[in-house]
Write a protein that binds this DNA or RNA. Structure first.
Lengths: 239, 239
DNA sequence: ATCACAAAGTTATCATACCAAAATAGGAAT
DNA sequence: ATTCCTATTTTGGTATGATAACTTTGTGAT
């Protein structure tokens, strides 16, 4: 451990201490979701700090999605949305986006998604089937020129398969990855003839396997779909 | 789409506008990593706003990891670390954690980790081997009473396997899950006799497969390890 | 050349005041 | 009783100026 020398002048600022205190209260459920925080003035008295310091702490908390500030009304503990967490990831990807990332994402999907399809086949409900079915119809009916919407729909299909596993952890782990797909696909998908037909067929095959609760078949069909995607991307990357 | 009625009074506050402006500058690389921002006073003049508004914008940016503020020195554009992005996910997991998630996490690990082990076997470097080796030694040498540290070490082993895949997406995906393990394991692991010996052996087997770059064997060994964990947890959950 | 210390620049905090948006309460019109 | 409007209160948003604490830089003595 080279932690011997580390952080000497890292004294937390006052506003950071305040931030931590409130964050801890939320983490420990002392402040429940939706709870209204005392007003700024009251909090100033309670913490015995100036409004400036307090407000800067609150700004950070709201930037991180922990609280919601409503002018004229008050501040409320907000349910941390997965979107907030993903927003950070998106920014990260935005800043470090390169073609290498594309193939790495594909690699992960190639490995994870077939297993997800299998789980979905084993656990899906009838409601899941309906959603997936409508999803496929949406793609088939979608205006071919609206590639953005096509990408969104395809994205949602995969996300809905993840949801059909009934395991929220699966959703949470894959959500950040799926959130990247529209951007990537937009670069490529539009240029490939016949790709949409293939995708619709592949999705139908996956759905059918899930309907039959045939995990192994769902696995295989997903492999086909992902490997095709991989091919398309590979072509693009060679250009 | 029920987006017909939505957000009317969404007037951005001044500090949010400032935040966007600076964020955009960073996203568009007009401000490069490490670049020093003008001082608060200068920025105030440039944006023609008060220091209060400006500072609150800067607090948000630093909370999101885009800039680093050094007292007495200045403000610098910082490289957005993966850890910053993952920190948000961790918080999210933290807030939605309950014992019901344990079995779901196990299910996910059961499906994902063997594949990760296979990827690691294919892509590992010698440096990865060394890290994993030291990790196993640490566990073997660890004070048996210090269950917290044992849990940490085990946690790190799995994370290091993920790192050995060489694919950052894998890390991002799994890191939040691993961050939950110590807490879970602490509840259970301590009570099971002989568990440590088993874990050490299992880890050695996994490492050996990765060393030989035998993906299939690594996959299988990881299955063994995870299913054992699943057993232990199942016993606990039945109590 | 080295060290100690002062000076300048920068962020952190505080205190106060005023502005703007939203919620609330009260009363008037229906 | 209900609806509508208005005045009041509460709450967050912005502005300003002063002071403290910290970092960096430069100066001068050694």
């Amino acid at each position: 451990m080279d932690e011997i020398f580390g952080k000497i002048g890292t004294a937390q600022t006052l506003s950071q201490k305040i931030e931590r205190r409130i964050e801890e209260a939320i983490r420990q459920k002392k402040l429940l979701i939706g709870a209204k925080l005392p007003s700024e003035r009251e909090l100033c008295e309670m913490f015995a700090v100036s409004r400036t310091a307090l407000r800067e702490a609150l700004r950070r908390l709201s930037a991180r999605g922990l609280i919601q500030i409503k002018k004229g009304s008050g501040m409320y503990v907000s349910e941390l949305k997965i979107e907030d967490a993903i927003e950070s990831l998106n920014l990260y990807y935005d800043l470090s986006f390169d073609s290498g990332l594309i193939s790495q994402i594909i690699e992960v999907r190639r490995v994870f998604e077939p297993e997800i399809a299998r789980m979905a086949a084993n656990n899906r409900t009838d409601a899941d089937l309906e959603i997936l079915n409508r999803n496929i119809s949406d793609l088939a009916d979608c205006d071919p020129d609206n590639t953005q919407m096509e990408a969104d729909i395809i994205n949602k299909f995969h996300l809905n398969v993840a949801k059909a596993t009934g395991n929220p952890i699966v959703i949470i782990t894959m959500e950040p990855i799926y959130s990247l797909l529209p951007r990537m696909r937009n670069l490529i998908y539009a240029n490939v003839d016949g790709e949409k037909d293939f995708t619709v067929k592949a999705h139908r095959a996956i759905l059918e396997s899930i309907r039959q609760q045939d995990g192994e078949k769902a696995f295989q069909e997903m492999v086909v779909q992902i490997e095709r995607t991989l091919e398309v991307y590979t072509q693009y990357l060679k250009k």
